[in-house]
Design a protein around this nucleic acid. Sequence first.
DNA 1: CCGTATCCGCGGTGATACTG
DNA 2: CAGTATCACCGCGGATACGG
Lengths: 124, 124
Amino acid sequence: MPGKKALNLEGRSQDMLALLDALDIFNGKWKIAIMCSLNERKKRFKDLQRDVGKITGKMLSKELKELEINELVKRTVLDTKPVTVEYELTSYGGSLEKVIIELVSWGLKHRKRIFRKGFIDKKR
Amino acid sequence: MPGKKALNLEGRSQDMLALLDALDIFNGKWKIAIMCSLNERKKRFKDLQRDVGKITGKMLSKELKELEINELVKRTVLDTKPVTVEYELTSYGGSLEKVIIELVSWGLKHRKRIFRKGFIDKKR
DNA sequence: CCGTATCCGCGGTGATACTG
DNA sequence: CAGTATCACCGCGGATACGG
């Protein structure tokens, strides 16, 4: 890795403030997972719920609403019967792709490590 | 960006499971911020608290303990008087650097965007 | 300096039932 | 299908005091 980028974090730096801002936006257990699922492609409510897993409808609805407020996700109601609602990343939401990729990539490495260590995985 | 990596997220994929695992490890409001601060360099308790900002001692202590359990952070008690305690990333913890860099980088962009839009920043 | 102990309120989260 | 309403729990996280 040439050019290991040194982050400047001295004394409540801009970097730390920015990080805290970012983390604020992704509070809640599911927001990143939702973004990740949507990063793949446009999805309907039910599909998202299946993807993310154990999230309840209430939580999914709430988190999506918050993501929409922050302009990361766009909600589209289709005039079908019964109604269909599609969610997709905004172009701004798409700017999170690299974050998500790194997170997933780390998670995969982490899983391998856990597996090597013989830990038991939670029910999922 | 050549080679836009397509994530495979169909139906509770390994990627999503990995992501959820990763997110589990970073639950709590402060863990990422702590890792970020430590990514810069080794720090003592008080320094960390100053860096992260509004975190209380109890929370910092708790989060550090959990990070230690997950082998992301190493705790060293120095035999001074009064005692000094240093925290640093383990090499495994260091593997999160890319995630942190992307997160900070996104946060900085986000701040600029917020600023452009004329939103008021929270007190920090 | 580096924590731990205790108290406590609030809200995040889940379960379930219901609506358009 | 895509939510909302309601109830209830528990653990996050703050405040404060204390301990090594």
